Amino acid sequence: MVTDVAPHAHTDLGAGGRWTSLEAAGREWLWHRPDPARGTVRPGDAFVDAGGLEECVPTIRGVPDHGDAWSRAWRRVGTAHVVECPDFVLQRRIRRTATALRAGYELRADAGYRFLWAAHALLDVTPAACLNAPAGTPTRLFPEAAPLLDRSWPSTARHLTGPWPAPCGLRLDRLGPDDGTAVGAVLTSCDRVTVTDGPDTLAFALRAEAPVPVSVALWRNLRGFPTTGAYRSIGVEPMIGSVFDLAEAGPADVAEVPADGRLRWELAITATTTRTPEASP
């Protein structure tokens, strides 16, 4: 029997608003990699990959590394979590309903401000897990994928695009087994995906109030990164935008703050399981 579950979340406002737990039916979905450097970061520092879910805005790759919000302390204002950055203020409200965990966001900035955002969720899944998205979804590959392709990478191309689940012949929906590779991709014009791992499924759905690009980023690191001390990490990242680096974004790749200075969106997370309570991990 399939059981619907509304996940529980825990966050650490002092550590960049980071989500430290996403639990459903006795299963912890977030992967962690403890690193003492995560507790001492300052704005502008290189990203510390400690797992969990990090709020990446106004860029993911590029400068500042993984954005400007993950390295700053957030504060609570009523029911909201707020971070103030030099060019914008981001507000987040997380609430749990009977069927879903919902995170509502509002970014305030000058009209015309351009940004990317990603819920940089690193998931604790087995090598048998799969990422499910509509077949044919246009999926962008980035240069680190070049050695995995059976074709040459054009010298002037910042990304190549092909249909999900195997853009340019590279099968990406399987999240293992570990094979020493690491690749990033963006499923463009995609507002919902599911991750299936044995009897458990986690689903992400993203909705924006304004007509902005909505995508899902995938970071499939099967012990191919970093060069020294490689480890396994799987990122499934609902995002506003369709590229990783704001500096490389075209006009259609980013969100732009409208005339009233506010842009809002909502991330809904749901889960299902076919395990009985006695079989929960």
Score class of each variant (00 low, 15 high):
V5W: 02
A6S: 14
A6Q: 06
P7G: 11
L13A: 14
L13W: 08
G17D: 00
G17C: 00
G17F: 00
R18C: 04
S21Q: 13
L22G: 05
E23D: 12
R27D: 01
E28Y: 10
R33T: 08
P36K: 10
A37F: 07
A37P: 09
R38P: 01
G39S: 13
D45V: 07
F47L: 13
A50L: 02
L53H: 14
E54V: 11
E55C: 01
E55Q: 06
R61H: 15
D65F: 04
H66M: 13
D68I: 00
D68Y: 00
S71N: 10
S71Y: 01
R72Q: 06
W74T: 01
W74D: 00
R75L: 04
V77C: 11
A80V: 05
D87W: 11
F88E: 00
L90Y: 00
R92K: 15
R92T: 02
R96T: 09
A98N: 05
T99W: 09
A103D: 04
A109R: 01
D110E: 15
D110C: 09
Y113L: 06
L116Y: 02
A119Y: 10
A119E: 10
L123C: 09
D124N: 13
T126M: 09
C130P: 00
L131G: 02
A133Q: 06
P134A: 13
G136Y: 12
R140A: 15
R140D: 12
E144P: 08
L149F: 03
D150W: 11
D150V: 10
R151F: 06
S155W: 13
A157Q: 13
R158C: 14
L160G: 02
L160Y: 05
T161P: 07
G162W: 09
G162D: 07
A166D: 11
A166V: 10
R171L: 13
R171I: 09
R174H: 15
L175I: 12
G176A: 09
P177K: 12
D178E: 13
D178N: 14
G180R: 14
G180V: 13
A182N: 13
T188A: 14
C190Y: 04
V193F: 01
T194K: 01
T196R: 02
T196G: 02
D197E: 03
P199S: 07
D200L: 04
T201L: 02
A205H: 12
R207Y: 06
E209F: 09
P213E: 10
P213H: 12
W219G: 05
W219Q: 03
N221C: 15
L222N: 03
T227R: 15
T227D: 15
T228A: 14
P238N: 11
L246Y: 03
A249H: 03
A249K: 01
G250W: 07
A252N: 09
D253R: 09
P258T: 02
P258C: 03
D260S: 05
D260Q: 09
E266N: 06
T272R: 11
T273H: 06
R275F: 03
T276K: 15
